[in-house]
Design a protein around this nucleic acid. Sequence first.
DNA 1: TGACATACCACACAAATGTGTGGTATGTTC
DNA 2: GAACATACCACACATTTGTGTGGTATGTCA
Lengths: 207, 207
Amino acid sequence: MCGMFITMKEKPYLTPKQERVLNFIRKRVGERLPPTIREIGEELGFKSTGTVRDYLKVLIQKGLVKRMNSKSRAIELTERASFKIPIIGTIMAGKPNLAYEEIQGYVDADDLFLGRLGFDDVFALRVKGDSMVDAGILDSDIAIIKKRPNADNNDIVAALLDNNEVTLKRLRSKGGKFHLEAANPSYAPIFEEFKVIGKLITVIRKY
Amino acid sequence: MCGMFITMKEKPYLTPKQERVLNFIRKRVGERLPPTIREIGEELGFKSTGTVRDYLKVLIQKGLVKRMNSKSRAIELTERASFKIPIIGTIMAGKPNLAYEEIQGYVDADDLFLGRLGFDDVFALRVKGDSMVDAGILDSDIAIIKKRPNADNNDIVAALLDNNEVTLKRLRSKGGKFHLEAANPSYAPIFEEFKVIGKLITVIRKY
DNA sequence: TGACATACCACACAAATGTGTGGTATGTTC
DNA sequence: GAACATACCACACATTTGTGTGGTATGTCA
């Protein structure tokens, strides 16, 4: 334990309250507009703007947030922001020209992940295991899930099992009853009790 | 030619000046923070806030922009923007709690697609065909490619063939020579001349 | 005990920002 | 010519938002 080398970038320690403030800022920055000081206070239940300023001060000091003085909503996250990627062509449909002039459109996160869904309905899970390989979903892929209490036959869903485990499987109906099926012949179908927590809408894999 | 039905959504006509205002808003929204009315005026050379309000009025009326009254910087584009998605847990690692407090981090486009690569080096292609199914890459997946003139053994690459076709295959070296291999036994390896145009870094699939 | 961090509140004030009214001028359309 | 859109400006005013000072209370560390 002692003498261990720390090679990872240290995450600054945040108290749970500070974490909540940061998470709210993240949410708002991601959703639409960074919040004002008073909006933060309202959300987190602070009755004084001074309290919020105190929190911002520590977040700035810990390097998680930047601000421009005297400008409204001018709160920036130190974490990187998202942006767009050009779609240049379709593979095997001819030679794509890598120049800007040939750009067909842009892939953006919103379009890519969610279509027109809202922020609150969506979350991401990292896939573990090979139970869905035949559906092209591999170990360590990121699954983007839209929260839903139900789904249709053949949808791939995130389901909560009785043992409190969450799993990604294909939903099947047979004779009016639903069960879960892996996309890998070495896994047996699951007939036990489960609860659908969401529907798979996007898979992302990094190499 | 004549009598053709137009099914695309008509883009509202904008005067060049209106276009400039919209573009500035786009730029600011993408970069960091939507502008204030006065910031727009400053950039575009208007000396009156009323002028800017007139422009916003037409942009709103033409459905390109939304606003919240009396809120600073509360200008939204009707076009969709990108944003972040919370990573809440890892599938099969226990029950994820969908509340704010449990957010582990955020997936953002930058992180997801590119790691730390720059914008200019990256483009996207839509995959056609089933030649890579065994690598979990399916028809109509989106392949994010980093431009590179070469790659390593076993990398999946976008390659330009002699017939001007671009294809996604695994790069293999054998006896000092490179060839391309599909990830599907029904496709034969490609030994003909080819040029690597980039390396696969991310796959995205929407359901 | 003193020093310091966390975790708040109240309230005054200043600066930034949005709202609104009333103008001018130049076109185009009917 | 009347009606209307575009393309501006000046300026007062209201509201929102950020700043700053001075508190209270609780806990930890040394």
